[in-house]
Design a protein around this nucleic acid. Sequence first.
DNA 1: TCTGGGGTCCTAGGACCC
DNA 2: TCTGGGGTCCTAGGACCC
Length: 432
Amino acid sequence: MQTHSSEPRFFLIDCNNFFASCERVFRPDLAHQPIVVLSNNDGCVVARSKEAKALGIPMGEAEFKLRPLLERHKVHIFSSNFSLYGALSKRVMASIESLVGSVEQYSIDECFVRLKPSQAVNALEIARAIVQRVQQWVGIPVSIGIAASRTLAKLACHLAKTYCSEVFFLNGSEEQHDSLFAEIPVQEVWGIGRRRAKRLNEAEIYTVYDLKYADTAWIRRKLNVTALNTQLELRGIPCIEESTAPAEARKTIVTSRSFGEKVYAQETLAHALTAFVSRAAVRLRKNKLLAKGLAINIASSRFSEQYTDKSWQISLVRPTMDTQVLIEAARQGLAKIFQPGIPYARAGVLLFDLSSSHVRQGSLLDLSAMSHELRRDTLMHTLDSINSRYGHGQIRFALEGTEPEAWQMKQERRSHNYLGNWQDLAIAHCKN
DNA sequence: TCTGGGGTCCTAGGACCC
DNA sequence: TCTGGGGTCCTAGGACCC
């Protein structure tokens, strides 16, 4: 088998316990303390500090089930604070870019770097410099995997964490890699989730090593081409490309939330959907897009006896960025699928059939409608710029409702928005 | 009582066409 | 009326990611 599996072509840089580390940046007193961060609505655990992991707190577990354990060990609990995490993520990425030129951001806490030949020569030194700089400039610890393909770089990063090393370079011989891979369960591989792992296990493929050398035709037949690419990547042959620029390539925009409390009233659901449409529309305009399709869905709890999940969708006459047009469509849809007596637990809005707002098509038949649309566009952009300057929700549609309501999510332990709100700036106290 | 949110890609199957 | 291959497009659902 011809491979080049030790050539350094990619970094995968991953922030350690990112949300928990973010909370620590402005609470240095929490160093070495167990921390968990909860999902939206304070439902379940989505991030844990190293100390919390050591206490055996599982990922994704419902908070109410863990409460005794959390209290017993005095675990610090935070609601998720995405504006803070987003702001710190930007700083992490910028710090890395200051050393390597450009990164391919993969998620809020991870990025790939495709190494130029000149960088590949000094891969290890550069990686160590990144770890040091991100810690110093932003205060976030990162781990780095260095390898010949993206999948291997992810695996190398996993090894870095396993061996408590900041950087792991897969630069050994084929045999050395294989003996490492024989110890790693196959579900650790990027792209192999629970289901595929189960199918692989049924075929007696248990480890990364097994997958690397499994019969290629079988993988293609029983799984799919994605899994085949994964296998080739394990052999050191890069074949997963960078996902294309998100803003232009994006196909859907989703805003959905679970409610703080169950909702029975149609009008309350309408308020929630209106708020979700408004948020989705802001993201639409920020990406310079128009939407032609809108879907809504309302559902009761998956754990409830009266489980129901209803959706409705519409194709609009013309692509739009106008919040009001979208709100009207959503409310119209709600009237069609709402059923009284159901304890609704969540709702969502999906914008689809997206197109670039640069190539908005004029209607030759109706010039006055065109000019109305252009005036509305201007109004929407004005709304966005006021809200971005004075804070989200400063100006909003009255149909969102004016009082706090049951649908709004629980966030009882949210930290300050230290980097996004003047009122929330950290304050230093001097002792004399 | 309480169980996240936001995405992408692939495949199978049906409708429709020649 | 039935016969057949082959192509495209769309949608629903599954699987994965963080």
